[in-house]
Design a protein around this nucleic acid. Sequence first.
RNA 1: GCGCCUAUGGUGGAAUUGGCAGACACGCUAGUUUUAGGUACUAGUGCGAGAGCGUGGGGGUUCAAGUCCCUCUGGGCGCACCA
Length: 834
Amino acid sequence: MQDRYNFSEIEKKGQKKWDETKAFKVVEDPSKDKYYVLEMFPYPSGKLHMGHVRNYSIGDVVARFKKMNGFNVIHPMGFDGFGLPAENAAIKNGTPPAEWTWSNIHEMEVQLKELGLSYDWDRECATCHPDYYKWMQWIFIQFYKAGLAYKKENPVNWCPSCQTVLANEQVVDGCCERCGSPVGKKNLSQWYFKITDYAEHLLENLDNGKLDGWPDKVKIMQKNWIGKSHGAEVDFKVKDYDETLTVFTTRVDTIYGTTFMVLAPEYPSVLDMVKGTEYEAPAKEYIDKCAHMSEIDRTSTTNEKTGQFIGKYAINPFTGKEMPIFIADYVLMGYGTGAVMGVPAHDQRDFDFATKFNLEIIPVIDPHDPEVDLNNLKEACAAEGTVINSGEFTGMNNKDAIQKIAEVADERGIGRKTINYRLRDWLISRQRYWGTPIPMIYCDHCGWVPEKEENLPVMLPTDVEFTGKGESPIVTSKTFVDTVCPVCGQPAKREVDTMDTFLDSSWYFLRYCDARNENEVFSKEKADYWMNVDQYIGGVEHAIMHLMYARFFQMALHDLGFVKDDEPFKNLLTQGMVIKGYKDAEGNYVKAKMSKSLGNVVSPAEIIDKYGADTARLFILFAAPPERELDWSDQGVEGCFRFLNRIWRLVYEFTDKYENCPGEYEVKNKADKDLNRVFNDTIRRVSNDIDERFNFNTAISAVMELVNELYKYKEGDVNEALFSTIIRTIIILMAPFVPHVTEELWADLGYEGSVHEQRWPSYDESALVKDEVEIVVQINGKNKEKINIPGEASRDEMLKIAEENETIKELTADMNVVKVIAVPGRLINIVVKG
RNA sequence: GCGCCUAUGGUGGAAUUGGCAGACACGCUAGUUUUAGGUACUAGUGCGAGAGCGUGGGGGUUCAAGUCCCUCUGGGCGCACCA
């Protein structure tokens, strides 16, 4: 054994061994319980960052720990290979996206291996590989056949910089989620997935216990995103015009207070209604203005309302009252019906609009609040109360009125109760090259038809030009577009759009179950064995998009009979960000996300170089619990490196001085007994901390404490069998965290095989009992004295010892003892008076 | 604006069920050893001279509160003209 901890040599050796022996290859084994550990696969940018290291280190601990506990562990890794950066690289340097991506993937494979992660590399998938996207296309076709995919012309979010459309979820603060450019609107015919069909199912599973292993935060975010709201629709006839306008409202109790109606500028019949009237020109102008506004302008929070009267009046079906109809951009075509009844007295937006256009304000709910003057409202009053000015409903509680008015509307055929969702269908077409081609063909005779399944994959063409301008590069291909109709055999044209890359990542966990299957997307038998994912780990930034899309895929595939469960991920861990403090211009210490512009980036490669992968992993797991932010500290890293050296020296000294005799040992004296207790307690703590709490930081600190104890112990008489057993166990306990150094020490101690194939140790409950425990005696809750009592003393025995204590006697001498509380093994609290 | 999370020494954090606040680590101080130096080892380290005081501020429940309840403040995240 070397006297120095030579991490770089050891790590290379370990990785070589695991690679050659395929140490982490798994196959289905029905005799064993399976465990599926999954970390979100990376986009192959070419370089791992600390966030990856954290994500994958957490997963690796879980995978190795579960394996040592006898589970058949599947722990796969792959790459989310499609996406815009590859195309940008092509535009910039002329490197074909495939070449750029594959070279990055190979680089990252090396980096992942350098971290010593226990992946079954035989299951590796890259979404940009034809063997993968073939099945992506196959799934698309199944969805299409099931009516879950459709094409529709719609105004869509358009990113002028990426030259492509964006899903609703990909617009952040009115800007492109990827590049940050302001998003505009464009009318395009695009493919959609009917995720709204699953709105209720997606919502229901958030609450029915299936996702108990998910953080509440993520569930709440998804719930808000789906945005279910109960309300009613009411039909308004247009005066002197053959049209019925249906509004959606959650406050049908305020219908008697309606004084105007507002339609979204894109509302289909607006142009017909103004045709040939004096309102045609101004209405068109207003619509045009809205169409050219970017998302950011349109949703800007300067609440100045705009709108345009269209010269028509709607008739309130309850009151018969005629109300002017406006178009205004604060009404959204995509939510509800695109038509809103204006109730200025009880809705702030309507109030602002009415104030601006000088419209009538009729209060219809009395909140019984002395501070609200209903006849002179300064702002809308959204409070609950009694219904007034509302005909037959006057006097009702407004909550009851919501129900009653909807029922009456239904009876009279002028309305109905409905449910609305904020969630919209998923726009999946992208006008880009580097993605999965949508396997659809347009035939003049047959319309849109899917490519024949036996012709999959529809390969991405390589004869394309990357100019960064105009349409998708695919249209420059001379070989791609023209084809024949799979139905009638006539000349036809292929869809040139590719799929949103979020589709690729919505089912990769299923493909891992049977990654090399050439005949099926995956075998149902294998997927049924491995699924669902027992532990999924990744960044919280995927809380909505990726995690909801993946759930939708699983549900759809479940309904189509391909998978057994309707949820893919049983437990979810969202790890915190890795941040690093830096000095700002004024010299203040500021915490911030690692970023190039701030110059506070620490690269995994430099840490691995200097201290090794084991130290990097240990620090990242020790510095904070996984869900929290992790503040990078170079000194902290050094501390972890020191700890590994401390273990190394312990073993080195031991092999030099003592005999290696693990197994049965005899507890000979008090020092042995104390050490044995700490030892067994460490096994208990580490096991609990990993398994039940994922608190790796405290698991590691428990081992640190044991190591500190050993350092003290070895200064006295050493019980070689006990010492030997403890050293052996420490190596095993640390193996999931620092796989290389433990593997080396395992061999240095003369043990056979791999430390990673050892059974996780169990502890001896009886060894945990203390002969003597120190308890606190409090008087009126204040600590006054510490006394030692036998470990198994009963309540009464404990009280007796306390009563005999001189200090306590003195302190309670002239006092009237009201009550005594005794918690065995912890404390005594004497409550006194006077 | 609405919703959620969070606040503990000089720093990262610990305290699993309400029961000794500050485990473990970093940093710092002193010492020992070796050395050219780093390293390693030992001791100390919440504040306060002290009685005491201490988990963002204020209030409450309890024998007992970092932990439960109310309220305010700071920080973070999500959604945001969703009718």
